[in-house]
Simulated scan of single mutants.
Amino acid sequence: MVYTDLPHLERVERIHAAGFAAEIWDWTQKDAGALAATGATFTSMTGYVAGDLITPDGTDGCCARRSLSIPFAQAIGSPSLNLHGTGLGEGGIPVRPVEVVTGDMWLAAVRTLTRVAELGETHGVTFVLENLNTEVDHPGTPFAKAADTLALVAAVDSPHLKMNLDLYHAQIGEGNLVELVRRAVPHVGEVQVADVPGRCEPGTGEVRWSFVAQALADAGYDGVVAMEAFASIPGTAGSDLALAAFREAFTL
Score class of each variant (00 low, 15 high):
residue 1 M to L: 00
residue 2 V to Y: 07
residue 2 V to T: 09
residue 3 Y to N: 06
residue 6 L to W: 04
residue 7 P to W: 13
residue 8 H to K: 09
residue 10 E to Y: 02
residue 10 E to P: 00
residue 11 R to C: 12
residue 12 V to K: 01
residue 13 E to S: 14
residue 13 E to L: 11
residue 14 R to D: 10
residue 19 G to D: 09
residue 20 F to L: 07
residue 20 F to A: 03
residue 20 F to T: 03
residue 20 F to D: 01
residue 22 A to F: 05
residue 23 E to M: 12
residue 25 W to G: 09
residue 26 D to R: 01
residue 28 T to F: 01
residue 29 Q to L: 13
residue 31 D to G: 06
residue 32 A to P: 00
residue 38 T to R: 05
residue 39 G to L: 01
residue 40 A to H: 00
residue 41 T to R: 15
residue 42 F to W: 08
residue 43 T to G: 11
residue 43 T to W: 00
residue 47 G to P: 04
residue 48 Y to P: 02
residue 48 Y to M: 15
residue 53 L to S: 09
residue 53 L to H: 02
residue 56 P to K: 07
residue 58 G to I: 08
residue 58 G to H: 03
residue 59 T to L: 07
residue 60 D to N: 01
residue 60 D to Q: 11
residue 62 C to W: 15
residue 64 A to D: 14
residue 67 S to R: 15
residue 68 L to I: 00
residue 73 A to V: 10
residue 73 A to F: 03
residue 78 S to D: 07
residue 78 S to M: 08
residue 79 P to F: 08
residue 82 N to T: 14
residue 83 L to A: 09
residue 84 H to D: 09
residue 84 H to I: 00
residue 85 G to A: 14
residue 85 G to I: 09
residue 85 G to C: 11
residue 86 T to W: 02
residue 87 G to V: 02
residue 88 L to D: 08
residue 88 L to R: 05
residue 90 E to Q: 14
residue 92 G to P: 10
residue 93 I to D: 08
residue 93 I to S: 11
residue 94 P to A: 08
residue 98 V to L: 09
residue 100 V to H: 15
residue 100 V to C: 01
residue 101 V to R: 06
residue 104 D to Y: 01
residue 106 W to M: 11
residue 111 R to K: 15
residue 112 T to E: 13
residue 115 R to I: 02
residue 116 V to N: 06
residue 117 A to I: 04
residue 118 E to Y: 02
residue 121 E to H: 11
residue 122 T to H: 10
residue 122 T to P: 00
residue 125 V to L: 11
residue 125 V to H: 02
residue 127 F to W: 07
residue 131 N to K: 02
residue 132 L to A: 05
residue 134 T to Q: 14
residue 134 T to D: 11
residue 139 P to D: 13
residue 144 A to N: 09
residue 144 A to V: 00
residue 145 K to Q: 14
residue 146 A to P: 01
residue 147 A to I: 05
residue 149 T to C: 14
residue 151 A to S: 14
residue 153 V to E: 08
residue 155 A to Q: 08
residue 158 S to G: 10
residue 164 N to E: 14
residue 167 L to M: 13
residue 167 L to P: 05
residue 167 L to N: 01
residue 167 L to C: 09
residue 169 H to C: 10
residue 178 V to K: 13
residue 178 V to E: 15
residue 179 E to A: 15
residue 182 R to M: 00
residue 183 R to D: 14
residue 183 R to T: 15
residue 185 V to A: 04
residue 185 V to Y: 08
residue 196 V to M: 07
residue 197 P to A: 12
residue 198 G to A: 12
residue 198 G to I: 10
residue 198 G to S: 12
residue 199 R to G: 07
residue 201 E to V: 07
residue 205 G to I: 07
residue 205 G to V: 09
residue 206 E to T: 13
residue 210 S to N: 13
residue 211 F to H: 12
residue 214 Q to M: 04
residue 215 A to T: 04
residue 216 L to Q: 07
residue 217 A to Q: 12
residue 217 A to V: 06
residue 217 A to W: 08
residue 217 A to L: 13
residue 218 D to A: 15
residue 220 G to T: 06
residue 220 G to W: 08
residue 220 G to Y: 07
residue 221 Y to A: 05
residue 222 D to F: 00
residue 222 D to N: 11
residue 224 V to S: 06
residue 228 E to N: 05
residue 232 S to E: 11
residue 235 G to W: 06
residue 236 T to I: 13
residue 239 S to W: 00
residue 241 L to P: 00
residue 242 A to H: 02
residue 247 R to P: 03
residue 252 L to H: 15
residue 252 L to W: 10
